[in-house]
Structures are given as C-alpha cells and as structure tokens.
Design a protein around this nucleic acid. Sequence first.
DNA 1: TTGTAGGCGTTATCAC
DNA 2: GTGATAACGCCTACAA
Lengths: 353, 353
Amino acid sequence: MSTRRATISDVAREAGVAASTASVVFSGKTAVSQATREKVLAAAERLGYTGPDPRAASLRRGRSGIVGVVFDERLGVAFLDPVTRLMMDGLSEAVSPIGAGLLLLRTAAGEAEATTPEGPTLTTAPIDAAVLVGYSGRLRESLATVVARGIPVVVIEGDAGEGIPRILLDNREAQAQAAEHLRRLGHETVSIVTLPLDKQRRRGWIASDAEISIDVTRDRLQGARDVYPDAPVYAAAASSIDEGYAAGRVLFADPNRRPTAVIAQSDLLAAGVIRAAEDAGLRVPDDVSITGFDGVVVDGLAPYQLTTLVQASTEKGRAAGEAIAAMLQGRDPASIRFTCTFRDGNTTGPAPR
Amino acid sequence: MSTRRATISDVAREAGVAASTASVVFSGKTAVSQATREKVLAAAERLGYTGPDPRAASLRRGRSGIVGVVFDERLGVAFLDPVTRLMMDGLSEAVSPIGAGLLLLRTAAGEAEATTPEGPTLTTAPIDAAVLVGYSGRLRESLATVVARGIPVVVIEGDAGEGIPRILLDNREAQAQAAEHLRRLGHETVSIVTLPLDKQRRRGWIASDAEISIDVTRDRLQGARDVYPDAPVYAAAASSIDEGYAAGRVLFADPNRRPTAVIAQSDLLAAGVIRAAEDAGLRVPDDVSITGFDGVVVDGLAPYQLTTLVQASTEKGRAAGEAIAAMLQGRDPASIRFTCTFRDGNTTGPAPR
DNA sequence: TTGTAGGCGTTATCAC
DNA sequence: GTGATAACGCCTACAA
C-alpha cells in the first residue's frame, strides 16, 4: 500500500493539538471542548485515521479484549454438538458487555507439534482469559499452560485444580432421575447407550465401567447404575443421531433379548435409537421407552417430544462468560453447578407386559 | 496476585545477558550459543517467565496472528448450518500454517449500538485480516469498516467491491443441473423450496422473485427457473430439517395439486421434505422425487442418499484461508469460483404417470 | 481543558 | 554470537 498508516500523533499534529488530547477525543476518558473534538475528528478524517491501533492500545492497557475458547477437537466436530453451540452462544453473549471477542483455540498438538509449522497457541495468543471446554486429557496440559501464564481461566465440565472456577452439571443425579422414572413405569430390562468413553471413541458393548476416562460419560452412567446396577452398556463413538441409530440396531437385533427401555446419554443418541426402534417394527413408547439427555431441539424429530433431562446449555456458556468477566475485574467467582430438569415427553410409557 | 510478572529484561538481567539476546533465544531468529541458551532458559524458569507477552510482540511486529471471522447471525445460529461448520474447519486449517487463530465476530449491532456498553468490534479488534461470511445487508457496513482500516479481507459468498477477493459458488448453473436432471426424468409438476429470502425470514409461498435479497437464494432459484420458469416457490425461514418438513407439509397437503418433484435449496430442507412426503404416504422416489443442495452428511437421513449438488464446503474455507495468507504476504489473490458436482442419489426417479 | 513526559514489553537493526 | 539502541503506537499521571 501507499505510505505508512496515520498514527494518533499525525492526527494531533494535523489538528494542531497534543497527542494526548487527540487520544482523549477517541477514548472519551476526559472531557474535551467541542471545538477541539471537531478539529481532531476532521484531521482524522483527512488523514484516513480510523481510530487507535488495537495492538498498541492493548499493550498499553494490558488487555486485548480477547477470550480464548479451547477445544480438544476439530472445530467442525466440536460444533456438531448442539450443546456446545448453545454454550458458545451464551458465552459470546456474556463476554460481549466487557467488550471481548472469542478466539477459537485448539489444545496443543502434543508430540506431533514439534514438526508442525507453527500455529496459534495458548502460549502465543494475546488473550485476557480462557475458557476450557471439555472433559478430557489434553485439556489438562492446556490448563497448566494457561495457569503458568497467569491468565484467568474457567473450565466447563471438566476437573480442574484449586481455585479454578468450574461450570458443572449434576449429571449423575439427573440421569438417576430418568432411570428412576423408568423404574416407576415398571421397566426391568433396560439398556444404556453412552457417549464416547475416551479419546479412542471405540464403539460397542463395554465390559467394565472402569474403562471410562471422560467425566460426563462416567457420571451419567453412574446415575443410571444407581437404579439399574446391571444394565448392559453400549458405547457410541460420538453424540449423533447416526451413532444412536447404529447402537439401536444392535440393541434391538435379537427379538428375544430386547430391552423395554433405553437410556441414551444424549438427545441425539436417543433420536437415533428411536429411529432404530421404528425400523425394528417397535412402537415408541408402547413397545420401548427411550430417554435422552440435554433437552436440545433435535432437528427432524418432529412428532416426538423426548423424555429427557433438560440442561441449561446456553446458561452454562453465559455463566462461564460472567465468571470470566468477574475474574477480569479482580474478583474470584465460585464454581457453579447447574441442575438439570426432568422433562416427561412422549417417548416413555409403562413397560409392556 | 503477588508481584508484577517477569519481563524479558528481567530474564536477561538474571541470566547476565542483554535483553535482545534473551529475545532471540525465544524467537529463534538468530543463532545463539548453546551455553547462552541454557543460561537464559534457566533464568526464565527461575523467574516463572513463560515467553514473550503476545501483546507487546504483536505491537512490535505489527501482526497479531489473528484473523477475524465475521458473521451476521448469532453464533449458535450460524453454526447450525453444516456448510458453515465445514467452512470454518477448512478455514482454521488453512490459517494455521501462518500461525493465525480465528476470532469470532458479529456484524455491528447497527443503531442499537450507540447505547450498548461496548462490544468486541471490527474497529477495536487486533486482527490482521478478516473473513466476511454471508450474503447480506450488514456485512456491507462491516466490509466498509475493514477496508477503511486497511485490513485485508476476503468475502465468502457475497458481493464485494473492487479488488476484494471472493469465494464463490456456481449456484445458478449447479441448480440448473439438478432441475435439468428432473426434467429428463419427465417431471413437469415441480415445486421449489428456498432458503430464506431476506433477513426477515418470512415463511410461505412467494409471489415474486423480486423480493429476494439474499444472493444464494436468488441465484439458486434462478438456476431452477432456467428449467422450470413457472414452478411455484415456497420459502423456508431457515435451512433446517424442521423447516423443510413444514414446507413439505404444505406442498403435499392437497392430493390434487401435488408436485411430482421438489427442488430444495439445501440438503437439510430436502431431508425435511422427504420426511413430510413419507408422512403424506408418498414414497421417495417412486411418488415424488426430491433434490437437495450442498452435499453434506445429514445426520439421521440414513437409508436415503440425496440427489444433490455437492459443494466443496471445506475447500471454500481453505481457499479463504489461503487467500488471507497470500494477502498477508503482500500478494493479491484472485477470487475463486467453485463448481458444484451433481450427485445422483436415490431420492429422484422417473416421474410417475 | 490541554500539554508534557514516560513507559507498556518486545524485537529489528546494526555495530561490535 | 552478543549487545546497545531505537522504535512499535498508545495512554495515563501529572503539571500547567
């Protein structure tokens, strides 16, 4: 491009005032006479000055106005989950009043990292605070990095160290409610379809609950186990309708060993299980009852209203944002544990006899 | 917290070297003797120095390593669209080699803005470049803002001014292909279900094509019109299965005026139309043929393989990212127009007689 | 209300 | 291979 961009001193000189005065015109921190303001604005206009350089301003202020959101998955994958989308929505809303934007970050690439060209990392990003999303492994490293940098951080649904605010869910208790509901309806043969167990995301029956390294999965399973200690468990490889469908196919394959109820750990999974039930010639909820978890709107599930646990997805994001805002103001917010609400839809009914 | 964080000069002093030398140890720009490197690293360790402050570094370098991605919708809404998700995936991949991260931004709030406390805006965000996503109104203002700031920008599927690289699709030609396919199959009574017409997102039959202010919608409709000039058009309020279902209900309501084929402007809409057809007792493709657009994987559509136009969603993002990278290196990349590929699935067949 | 001075933490440049 | 110096562009005391 032509020449160097105009700076605030250029504008000040052009307007015949001191740089600090011009600065004040833009920041509005101090009163300025109408005349001066106009002179400065006019000069800026002439020079094509569009306001303070954010880089310089953020160095000076010690704030960049950016909050990093760290995922442990590819973006396309993370946003597949409606709960994540809603959470981001709430988060973006909550940080907006403090003038912050959201920077998408991924967990460090681990060993492979060394060879990788470069990459926007937790260590090099100009963030004022960070939100860690998720429940597993590499996020721990990220947490350590952030903490070392002395950056305020909030963890959503994961374990964290001392004094780090967390946004949690009563997964176990909530799931137990749904199970209890089924028990009251007389169901005795119940199967469980879980979210992924770990990063490997293996699909299939699981032999021991011990293999589970993802908190959410473990907690929800425990809730179901509180009521049905011996229910067989099938793990899905992701939270999606297709995965639920695949699991459902397996569950309903043998007519002699069909469950009368299925506890799915997410609404998407539940939707897939419902479809598999239909394909197997079973009516929902007459022949088989199905519960979900999350309380999101499942696109295309139309006639059904899932019996599920409604979690405050958007609220979770908002709470995280508010915690961030608080920390940025020097306060230290407490962790929050959200409570899910049981919603009785039309996908559960009395056990068939 | 305790005291002020350590700076690179603190580290240098502690290590007994010059600040510039310490800097080089971290940046790796110049060779440093093994001994010096170790001294510096040890000092850093002792002082709890975790690397250069990104704010200062970006001021000095004139680069922040951040690319803004501007949406004209709430995040939760934008990411509802699988094409957008894939695009983001490609984009994040493409900017990663240049060490950039993605900052999520929304178009300015318009008039309401004045009263709003603050807000992370295009004007104040420390971005090196911007990607504008979408096809409509307020993005124009955003474009103006960015251009005024002299920031490189790429527009995805929207019109832009002179010399601004765009990532486009052959929407019209592609849609015409699908229509042509139907015509060859003998279909004469065809209805069209469109994406939203404008920001109002009104749902319903439309009288005149002139009301359309969103490019994608208009272009795809034109493609359909090239083959079926008089096909009735029903506008959906969003690109979703549920909206497609709603539209389908209306299309198939009157048994005497049922179309034998439906051209849906997105795969999600098509999936909804299929479901509505099934509900109306119609078999796909025996009684009614349905085409989509996008070529994304629709979760839960299982037995069907949509006849659709496959667009390179991820590629679009990647291309945008590469264009950004090029601009940041002083080159000026050309606009790119992607070509959709027609895919013949099992949702279209000969017109029933 | 306006101006002066100094520094935020880093890094590019150039001399040694 | 290492060090001194000078910006990068802005903002905030403080003084006038």
